[in-house]
Computed example of a mutant assay.
Amino acid sequence: MTPATLQLKKDQERRILAGHDWVYSNEIDTGQTPLKPLEPGQPVEVLSKRGRWLGYGYANPRSLIAVRITSRHREHPLTASLFVTRIQHALALRERLYPTPFYRLIHSEGDALPGLIVDRYGDLLVVQITTAGMERERGNLLAALEQVVRPARILLRNDTAVREQEGLEQGTEWVLGEDQGDIELSEDGLRFQVSPAQGQKTGWFFDQADNRRLLHRLAPHGSVLDCCCYLGAWGLQAVATGARSVTCIDSAASALAAVQSNAALNGLQGRISTLQGDAFDALRSLRDDQTRFAMVILDPPAFIKRRRDEAEGQRAYQRLNRLGLEVLEPGGLLLTSSCSFHMGREAFVQTVQQAARRSGRRLQLLFSGSQGPDHPIHPAIPETAYLKTLVLRALD
Rank of each mutant, 00 (worst) to 15 (best):
A4W: 07
T5N: 12
L6S: 03
Q7V: 15
K9W: 09
I16T: 04
A18V: 09
D21W: 14
V23W: 02
S25V: 03
S25M: 10
I28M: 04
T33Q: 04
T33P: 00
L35V: 01
L35P: 00
L35W: 08
K49G: 01
K49R: 11
R50N: 14
R52Q: 15
R52D: 13
L54V: 01
Y56G: 05
A59S: 14
P61F: 04
S63N: 14
I65G: 00
A66T: 12
I69E: 00
E75T: 15
P77Q: 08
P77S: 12
V84M: 02
T85R: 13
L91M: 11
A92W: 09
E95M: 13
R104P: 00
I106K: 07
A112T: 08
L113V: 03
V118E: 12
R120L: 08
Y121E: 01
G122C: 08
Q128H: 08
I129W: 00
T131G: 10
T131D: 02
G133D: 09
E135H: 15
R136V: 12
L141M: 14
A144Y: 01
E146W: 01
V149D: 06
P151I: 13
A152D: 12
R153V: 06
I154C: 01
R157T: 02
A161T: 11
E166L: 09
G167L: 11
L168K: 00
Q170C: 08
Q180S: 14
D182I: 06
G189K: 06
L190C: 02
R191E: 09
Q193K: 09
V194N: 07
A197E: 13
Q198Y: 11
T202V: 05
G203P: 11
F206C: 07
D207T: 12
R212M: 03
L215C: 05
H216Q: 15
S223P: 04
L225P: 08
C227H: 07
Y230A: 14
A233D: 13
S245L: 07
D250C: 03
A253D: 15
V259T: 11
N262G: 05
N262R: 01
A263L: 15
G267A: 09
Q276Y: 09
G277V: 10
D281F: 08
Q290P: 00
A294I: 05
M295D: 06
V296Y: 03
D299V: 10
D299I: 05
P300T: 06
K305M: 02
E310F: 14
G313W: 04
Q318C: 02
N321R: 04
V327W: 03
L328T: 08
E329A: 05
G331C: 04
G331Q: 11
G332T: 03
L334K: 05
T336F: 11
T336N: 14
R345T: 15
V352D: 03
S359Y: 07
G360N: 15
L363T: 09
Q364G: 12
L365P: 10
L366S: 10
S368Y: 02
G369C: 07
G372I: 10
P379K: 05
A380R: 06
I381H: 11
E383M: 06
E383Y: 04
A385Y: 13
Y386Q: 09
L387Q: 05
T389K: 13
